[in-house]
């Protein structure tokens, strides 16, 4: 196994891909979005539960590769307690991290928590979409809440 592969599939990622924190949809949600990666068929529905502009939790269901599943699981751990703007800031930073081609971004540890283990994905352009799937879903959820206001 090469160092790159070990960097991509860190143990934390493999654990999250199996444990899937936040897996299972709630009967209702404040916002919900369904995302599809047409090239590989990965699918994910992500619900947002919020109170007074603060995220309470995200719940999700989906089927896909270990990167997309781990990413949704890590997002579930990160999101609670964030305001909408803070969540948007983190989504933007995570996107920047994914597009960094292995270079990383500033403040990633502080703002992204355990999700920085996905940094290795940025070296694999073809897999960036997998890692982004849940984050794009959360972005769409936030847009729905904006539109409702």
């Amino acid at each position: 196994m090469s160092g790159d592969l070990a960097g991509l599939y860190q143990q934390v990622i493999l654990d999250h891909s199996r444990e899937k924190h936040g897996f299972g949809l709630a009967p209702t949600a404040d916002a919900s979005s369904h995302q599809l990666n047409p090239t590989c068929g990965d699918e994910l529905t992500l619900q947002l539960h919020a109170t007074d502009g603060v995220i309470g939790s995200v719940t999700w269901e989906g089927a896909g590769c270990s990167i997309s599943m781990a990413s949704a699981s890590l997002l579930h751990d990160l999101a609670p307690g964030l305001t909408y703007d803070e969540a948007r800031e983190r989504i933007a930073l995570f996107r920047e991290l994914m597009q960094s081609r292995g270079a990383g971004v500033e403040d990633e540890d502080e703002l992204l928590g355990d999700a920085i283990v996905l940094e290795g994905v940025s070296k694999y352009v073809a897999r960036v979409k997998c890692a982004m799937l849940a984050w794009v879903a959360l972005e769409a959820d936030l847009a729905q809440l904006d539109a409702a206001h």
């Binding site: 196994m1 592969l5 599939y9 590989c40 990965d42 896909g64 590769c65 997998c130």
Partner: peptide, 13 residues
């Protein structure tokens, strides 16, 4: 138990 993309990545390595 392993998604095709992960299989392909492992083989590519």
């Amino acid at each position: 138990g392993v998604h095709a993309h992960d299989v392909g990545q492992f083989l590519d390595d």
